[in-house]
Design a protein around this nucleic acid. Structure first.
Ligand SMILES: NC(=O)c1ccc[n+]([C@@H]2O[C@H](COP(=O)([O-])OP(=O)(O)OC[C@H]3O[C@@H](n4cnc5c(N)ncnc54)[C@H](O)[C@@H]3O)[C@@H](O)[C@H]2O)c1
Ligand SMILES: NC(=O)c1ccc[n+]([C@@H]2O[C@H](COP(=O)([O-])OP(=O)(O)OC[C@H]3O[C@@H](n4cnc5c(N)ncnc54)[C@H](O)[C@@H]3O)[C@@H](O)[C@H]2O)c1
Lengths: 205, 205
DNA sequence: TTATTTTTGTTAATCAATTAACAAATTAAT
DNA sequence: ATTAATTTGTTAATTGATTAACAAAAATAA
């Protein structure tokens, strides 16, 4: 089956997230322009995305919310999704663990955390157990983990990344600055709020 | 002066950041393909971006690092850049304060933090003073703050956003989930790691 | 000198993403 | 009925971003 455009996949995840709060009544409907407003995008974008996943609305009353969520679930292969781990249980790591966990709409399961600090190891954070970094190969293989999140303070992340990839990880979300060699077949995303700040400073005049 | 494409501005910020570590020797040069590798992009992209800001390299030895940094500084109006504030000094807020502060390459200054919790108020976090949220109008106006970062646990962010905008904020980076009305002239960016996780889960097979 | 290599600078081509335009369907109002 | 109003579904057009292609420059080697 043909893969959807990345931006469409991103928005599907967002549609589902905002709609899950709308799903009070099992018969509720939403118009493309209302869904668009929730994401601050154009209604045509919404209709086009839903067209791409083959979802049909009602000419007069819009899209059936429950059905749409179910089709997004199916399209994004939820709930049988991927397992993930996080490396670095500091301020940012803990924030992310707490942010992901309570969400009944994030289908990616956080299976384990890793740290190098004995004070953090063998403790549970919001239901996620923290292991010593040396346990990465064992735990990652055992749980068929495919996604890793990097939130360590040490800038020398290469050894950790190598261990993760050797153990089968295919996707990495990195918040740590510093040079890094990544094979081309790894899905890699990096975010730095400083880039966003500087971009904003440039455009707000 | 014509504004640069947003993606180019993002990359300029990233070029500067990675180059500032390269700037040992005041006469060091870098090739477009080396700079490209650092950002995991195409060398043509680099040359095109530098062309857009009118930077010229040397046909045989590449681009002069120090000069390039200086031109990016000028292009992004550094150091006379914008002031920012952060609302919510929890796990994520503290992580961001620490992440921005030590950086001598992030020209956006964090002027103040705000929280609702008396235990956080009137303390300093990495040199950033935390005020009660009620002080937003006063502090924001006083410091000519144009950018705000939202990292509170409360999902009812509308009153805070309204206060910020009323006080002159033009750009907002939001990490808090929940519906929000924002005027069209505000530069607004929202990130949620759950979207990235779900997108990754879809594409890694 | 003359070819060879390497790298920049720039235009053209391609690819991706968004938005415009409008027909088709449906309902409500006249 | 007929008309008007609203909303979906889809194609076409536009805009934006990336990559390909290649000439020009400079250094090196033959
Ligand atoms: N990209 C962004 O927007 C952004 C925002 C905030 C923070 N950050 C970055 O995220 C990272 C974490 O920030 P923080 O505030 O949570 O730091 P922190 O010091 O609170 O936590 C870091 C954690 O990583 C652990 N650690 C360090 N080296 C390790 C290693 N080699 N192996 C395993 N664990 C290791 C430490 O023991 C600690 O628990 C930093 O690199 C910071 O710069 C990025
Ligand atoms: N987008 C992402 O990728 C991402 C990642 C992690 C966390 N988050 C979100 O960031 C937010 C903060 O997470 P955290 O782990 O730092 O939470 P936290 O509970 O550690 O900290 C929240 C802070 O906000 C303060 N606060 C709450 N309501 C406030 C209000 N009305 N005005 C001022 N201050 C207020 C609290 O006193 C506390 O200090 C949460 O909404 C969380 O879901 C988003």
């Amino acid at each position: 089956m043909e893969k959807l455009p990345p931006k469409t996949v991103e928005r599907l995840s967002q549609y589902r997230r905002v709609l899950s709060k709308y799903e009070d009544d099992e018969n509720s409907y939403i118009f493309s322009h209302d869904l668009a407003r929730l994401l601050k995008i154009n209604p045509v974008q919404v209709r086009r995305d839903l067209m791409l996943i083959g979802f049909s609305g009602n000419y007069r009353s819009g899209y059936r919310v429950q059905e749409l969520i179910m089709l997004i679930n199916k399209t994004l292969k939820t709930p049988k999704s991927q397992n993930s781990v996080i490396i670095g249980v500091g301020r940012l790591g803990k924030a992310i663990i707490h942010h992901i966990y309570p969400s009944n709409v994030c289908p990616v399961t956080l299976k384990a955390a890793f740290d190098i600090d004995p004070a953090k190891i063998n403790k549970e954070y919001n239901g996620v157990f923290c292991y010593d970094v040396s346990k990465i190969p064992e735990i990652v293989k055992e749980n068929n983990v495919k996604i890793a999140i990097l939130t360590i303070s040490d800038e020398d992340i290469q050894p950790i990344v190598d261990a993760l990839i050797d153990s089968g990880v295919k996707g990495i979300i990195n918040y740590v600055a510093g040079p890094l060699k990544i094979p081309k077949d790894i899905y890699f995303k990096e975010y730095d709020i400083r880039t966003t700040l500087e971009e904003m400073a440039y455009f707000i005049e």
